[in-house]
Every structure is written in structure tokens, then in C-alpha cells.
């Protein structure tokens, strides 16, 4: 059993723009209106980097910035974990189109944008951070795997950790192979618990599949949860929005479950 505090949350998805607005929707206090998401400001990116960055990077950086601001921590002190099922699918589409043409004229920018740690790298540049940074994937369970990595980092290094999970809508024709129809990005700042912590959860890993992971999510959001791997975070986010005092289970590869007993939350 590992005790972990939650210090900040960032959120970006259709109808869930920012944690303040999103929390009200998740708690059932505001209606869910999934309008298109405007291109995120990602203000923390220097103009040159912002211009070169992919959509994925701007979504990830936007929620990272929101969660870090809420935590009040200096981002230069905070290691990061970026979790995404497919990473830069929009970049892969452009790259594979270019490679299918006779000239194969790949641009240096397109190539460096294609790495799975692009968002992590841009965040590091924007914050001048030198702490460790991991980018990972676990297909549909990427959020749970990222949470596991972040929780072990907090526990071993006794420091706050920024977890960012994101997947964007997959462009055609790649969407025929991986149909994700709407973008979803979430960031959570996790930390060792302290006396003043406004949310603490007890985390453990158990054998067995999660039979019903969706019990905590409003029916209107269940489609979102199933559509996008990053939205597998919705049961945890909904529990936080509801003020905590609940147990959340996230499946990990059909053989294990990450169980989070959430205390009272003020986030």
C-alpha cells in the first residue's frame, strides 16, 4: 500500500475544458456539452517551440501547465511521466505519407516531432527542467501504467511527480486502424502526503481483471472513456470531482488492477 497526495489536476477534452469547468461537469453540476476544443494556448512554450510543436504537444503542455500551477510547485523540481497509447499519430500520418512518395523528403522538424517523448521534451525545454522524464505506452491501459510509474517515482524519490496522459483524435486513414475520435489530455501532480494535503489516496496492485470499471463515470461520459485511452482516467477524475471518499479500480492488461482508495478531496 502506497500513500500518495494529489496536488493538482489539469484537463482538456471536448466539454471538459480546464479542471474548474471539467470538475463541475464530472460532479454532475454542469451539463456535458462536447463542443470542439479550441487550439490550446500552451502559453508556457516559447513562441519558436510553440510554432514547431504538434497538436499533441500543445494539448499535453496545456494540461501540464494547469496542474503545475494549481500545485504551486516549481516545475524545475518535478520529474515527469508522459503516458500516451499512440503518441504522435498525426505526425506519423504526415511522415508515412512523405515516405510513400518517391522523394521521401522528410523534414528534420517532422522527424523530431515523431518521437514518443516529444511532449516530454517540449515541456522540459519550456520549463528549463532537468529532472528525469519518462514517456511510455501501455495501449488502452496507458493511463494506469503511467500512474504506476508516477506512484513508484514519488515513493522511491520522495518528491512530487507530474503525470500527463494524452491521446488525440487519430487522423484518417490511420483512424481505420486505431479509431480514436476525440482528443483527451489529463495531468495530475502527485506527491508524498503531507499534513495539509487536500487529497490523499492509498494505492495498491492486485491480481484479477476489472469487471466494471465504469461504475463511477456518468453514463454520458462512458462513450468518452471507451473512445480514448487517456480518458480511462475518468473514474479517478470523477471520484476526485465528487469530493473523494471512494475506491477506484483501473484495469491493467486484464490480469491486474490498480486500486485507489481516495480519501476526502478538496481539489
Amino acid at each position: 500500500m502506497i500513500e500518495i497526495a494529489i496536488r493538482g489536476v489539469g484537463l482538456l477534452a471536448p466539454g471538459l475544458i480546464g479542471w474548474d469547468a471539467g470538475r463541475a461537469v464530472l460532479a454532475g453540476l454542469s451539463p456535458f456539452r462536447p463542443d470542439a476544443v479550441p487550439d490550446p494556448d500552451a502559453m508556457i512554450l516559447p513562441p519558436n517551440e510553440r510554432r514547431r510543436s504538434s497538436d499533441c504537444v500543445r494539448w499535453a503542455v496545456q494540461v501540464a501547465q494547469e496542474a503545475m500551477t494549481q500545485s504551486g510547485l516549481d516545475p524545475r523540481d518535478v520529474p515527469t511521466v508522459f503516458a500516451s497509447s499512440g503518441g504522435e499519430m498525426g505526425v506519423f500520418d504526415k511522415l508515412c505519407r512523405t515516405l510513400a512518395m518517391p522523394e521521401r523528403a522528410v523534414s528534420p522538424t517532422l522527424f523530431h516531432q515523431s518521437v514518443h517523448n516529444a511532449a516530454a521534451g517540449y515541456w522540459g525545454i519550456a520549463t528549463a527542467g532537468q529532472q528525469s522524464s519518462t514517456a511510455l505506452s501501455c495501449y488502452d491501459d496507458s493511463f494506469a501504467a503511467g500512474l504506476l510509474e508516477a506512484v513508484t517515482l514519488v515513493q522511491v524519490e520522495r518528491c512530487p511527480v507530474l503525470l500527463v496522459a494524452y491521446d488525440l483524435a487519430v487522423p484518417s486513414p490511420l483512424s481505420q486502424a486505431r479509431p480514436i475520435t476525440t482528443g483527451f489530455a489529463v495531468a495530475i501532480v502527485l506527491a508524498p502526503p503531507a499534513d495539509h494535503s487536500s487529497a490523499v489516496m492509498r494505492v495498491r496492485l492486485e491480481e484479477g481483471d476489472v469487471v466494471s470499471a465504469c461504475g463511477l463515470v456518468a453514463p454520458v461520459l462512458e462513450g468518452v472513456r471507451q473512445d480514448n485511452p487517456a480518458a480511462r482516467s475518468l473514474p479517478l477524475l470523477s471520484a476526485i470531482a465528487a469530493g473523494g471518499g471512494q475506491t477506484v479500480k483501473l484495469g491493467l492488461l486484464e490480469s491486474q488492477q490498480l486500486i485507489m482508495e481516495l480519501g476526502p478531496c478538496r481539489l
Partner: peptide, 11 residues
């Protein structure tokens, strides 16, 4: 195997 599994991709 049935334990935790993930792929790290940091170039």
C-alpha cells in the same frame, strides 16, 4: 507473464 508491463519510449 501477468505482472505490470509497459513500454518506455524516450528515443
Amino acid at each position: 507473464l501477468k505482472g505490470p508491463a509497459l513500454v518506455i519510449s524516450t528515443a
